[in-house]
Amino acid sequence: MAEGHARRFVKREEATAEEARKEAMQFIMMQSDKDGCEVKHINDEIGKGVFAEKDYIKGEFILEYDGELISRSEAEKREQTYPIGLGSYLFFFSSYFGKKLCIDATFSKRKGRYVNDAARHEELCNAEIRMLYVNYNPVLALFARRFIHAGEEIRYDYGTTDLPWRSKTESNETENSSQKDEGVWKVRYYDSF
């Protein structure tokens, strides 16, 4: 570096949508989790959760919600036959084209299935799920909604108020009613954010 010319490094506060998409696609194609998250046991009621091991800037890719892409009808059959102790890792959603699908992460070895719920209006909700397409198939990925500090638990809104750990408040029902269609979570498609 030439004398008298100091370079100033500024830490960015937000990832661009294109950078985040490219990074997400890289890890999705490699079928691996990005470094920077750790699965930890929280307690016997909640079970496991995913915690940031590094800071994430707003918009940054965190993890893929990896699993088997199946139809809604197949997912409903599995939901009835899976043993209670196995846990529920079925993510129902509508594709960009309106097809009702599910990603079954029950047997996934990846971390995304352990990310817990928090209502969108809560400060705990620091991530959001977005839909990308790989080889014409939808995939779901988690991105930071805000700056996430190392040590924070990663949480996103599951999109339904009828969960045992959620109180059914009028504000939750009102907020989520525009996002929900017959029990299917409407995931934001990548081009819409």
Rank of each mutant, 00 (worst) to 15 (best):
K77W: 00
E23W: 03
E38H: 10
E173T: 11
K22T: 01
K186S: 08
V39K: 14
D33I: 05
R130A: 04
D35N: 08
G36R: 06
S178V: 12
A144W: 02
F51Q: 09
N126M: 02
I148L: 04
V134M: 13
N126K: 06
Q179Y: 08
T106W: 03
I103W: 01
K180F: 04
I148A: 07
G159S: 07
A52Q: 07
Y133H: 15
I154N: 09
P138T: 09
G36C: 04
K48L: 10
F193I: 10
E128W: 07
N172G: 04
K99C: 04
A6L: 09
C37T: 15
L163K: 15
V184G: 01
K109W: 00
Y190G: 04
N116P: 08
G183P: 10
T16W: 01
R21H: 07
F9A: 11
S178Q: 03
L140M: 13
L101G: 03
T81N: 09
E173R: 15
A118P: 06
T16E: 00
L142W: 02
H149T: 11
L163M: 15
D55R: 15
L140V: 11
E3T: 10
R21C: 01
A75R: 10
V134S: 12
Q179F: 07
W165P: 00
I28Y: 00
R113A: 07
E23Q: 11
G67Q: 08
R8S: 05
V139G: 03
K168M: 14
L90P: 07
L90I: 12
E74K: 14
K54G: 02
H5V: 14
V10I: 06
I154G: 06
I84W: 03
E153F: 03
G159E: 10
G49C: 06
N43F: 08
A75E: 06
G151M: 11
S94V: 14
V50S: 05
K22V: 03
L101E: 08
Y65S: 12
C37H: 04
A20E: 01
G151N: 10
I154A: 09
E79H: 14
G183E: 07
A150E: 00
E64H: 03
E64S: 06
K109R: 10
